[in-house]
Simulated assay, not measured.
Amino acid sequence: MNYAKDPADYPLAAKDPALFVHQHEGAVSWGAVFAGGVGAAAFALILLTLGTGLGLTSISPWSTGASNAKALGFAAVVWVCVTSILTSGLGGYLAGRLRRRWLAVDADEIHFRDTAHGFLSWAVATLFTAAILTSVVSGVVRTGAQTAATTAAASGSVTMEAMQRGNPAAGMNTWPLGYFVDSLFRMPAGSPPPATAATTGSNETPRAETARIFLNSAATGDPLSPEDTAYLSQLVAQRTGLAPDAAQARVTTTYTRLLQKISAMNTAAKSAADEARKITIGVSLWLFISLLMGAFSASLMATYGGRVRQL
């Protein structure tokens, strides 16, 4: 497209030739866009920090965890939306007020450019804030994972998955396997106290062997084989003084309770994972809505700031 080079082709420029110079200036004032984006990002960090402090005050020690989570979740959603509207509106207004004054440009074009400036300032602020938050969150997650791993190694604890893979040495120090093995060799009521340190070492051998036998079958949820049941019944009868039938009943009951506990723990873990998935979906949807609110607020306030700028 060929543009006219004569100032007389522009009605306003014909009255003031100086306006002809501004006719071909760039439509985007990047300085104003970045200024608005930086201002919005800084204001967002301030409001998010304030929201964190206000959110912590809504947690009461006298209310249940579910009500705390619901109240905190609702407050967080509202605060994120309000923060997005306020910060984006500030960035858009700054972009509209700080951009160059357009001369010899019709009102519709000015309105479009101001809207674009607001949107661009929102985009700059969003990308800048996302980069900062991603860096901070990644650092926190990495530090937390390292701390959790160190704590687990120091305490000798293992996960249920590791226990089911056949690690009896670690499993003996892990609930619930250690508890059920201890209950299997528990002395009946009224029996003499257990042996002291002189025989403690010999008592650990059947316990570790029992843990290995339990893990061998519990890893797949299968019942104990008749051979394992008979062998464990013999060990229990020797260590506790129970009759063979009572020892066998204790072995069967203890192993059944172990399977039930493992199943309950797996169900709880799946429920927790499903709840986390639902929370993640909800957070993503509300974050999407808050971003749309921010884009609209930035564009709207940029048109208002631009209108004031043109006066």
Rank of each mutant, 00 (worst) to 15 (best):
154 A>K: 10
16 D>E: 03
61 P>H: 03
110 I>P: 00
242 L>I: 02
170 A>D: 15
66 A>D: 05
134 T>P: 00
271 S>N: 15
105 V>N: 01
29 S>E: 04
236 V>G: 14
287 L>F: 10
268 A>F: 11
115 T>G: 15
171 G>H: 03
135 S>N: 08
8 A>L: 04
166 G>S: 14
238 Q>G: 07
32 A>K: 11
276 A>S: 12
257 R>V: 05
66 A>H: 02
125 A>Y: 08
93 Y>L: 15
178 G>S: 03
68 N>G: 07
61 P>Y: 04
7 P>F: 06
120 L>Y: 05
54 L>K: 00
209 E>M: 11
67 S>A: 11
175 W>P: 02
89 G>T: 05
228 D>C: 08
187 M>A: 13
100 R>A: 14
169 A>R: 11
31 G>K: 08
225 S>G: 14
117 H>F: 06
229 T>I: 08
40 A>P: 13
191 S>Q: 11
23 Q>P: 01
99 R>P: 08
213 I>M: 14
295 A>M: 10
274 D>R: 13
110 I>Q: 14
164 Q>M: 15
271 S>M: 13
264 A>Y: 11
202 S>R: 06
286 W>F: 11
28 V>E: 03
167 N>I: 11
34 F>R: 11
101 R>S: 01
53 G>H: 01
14 A>P: 06
261 K>W: 14
224 L>T: 03
169 A>D: 13
95 A>Y: 13
91 G>D: 13
185 F>Y: 14
272 A>W: 06
303 T>Q: 14
248 Q>I: 11
268 A>K: 13
35 A>P: 10
238 Q>V: 10
284 S>N: 08
116 A>C: 06
116 A>D: 00
297 S>E: 02
268 A>R: 12
12 L>R: 07
161 E>A: 14
131 A>G: 02
170 A>L: 13
279 I>W: 11
301 M>G: 02
240 T>M: 07
23 Q>R: 05
69 A>L: 10
126 T>I: 06
38 V>M: 14
155 S>Y: 03
226 P>Q: 11
64 T>E: 06
301 M>A: 14
160 M>F: 12
103 L>W: 05
181 V>L: 05
51 G>Y: 01
154 A>W: 06
308 V>K: 10
20 F>L: 01
100 R>H: 15
94 L>Y: 12
161 E>I: 07
152 A>G: 02
221 G>C: 06
47 L>W: 09
131 A>H: 00
148 A>P: 04
6 D>Q: 04
72 L>A: 12
239 R>P: 07
23 Q>G: 00
243 A>M: 09
52 T>I: 00
226 P>C: 09
191 S>E: 12
88 S>F: 05
141 V>W: 03
169 A>K: 12
204 E>L: 09
17 P>C: 00
78 V>P: 02
245 D>P: 10
49 T>K: 00
132 I>Y: 06
199 T>Y: 08
35 A>Y: 10
228 D>P: 07
110 I>A: 07
64 T>P: 04
128 F>W: 09
270 K>C: 01
187 M>I: 09
83 T>N: 13
133 L>E: 06
301 M>D: 03
190 G>E: 02
185 F>K: 01
234 Q>Y: 09
273 A>M: 10
99 R>L: 03
42 A>E: 07
129 T>R: 12
104 A>P: 01
190 G>P: 05
89 G>R: 02
96 G>M: 12
208 A>N: 08
188 P>K: 09
20 F>H: 01
47 L>P: 05
55 G>E: 00
67 S>H: 06
34 F>P: 09
151 T>I: 03
260 Q>P: 02
133 L>W: 08
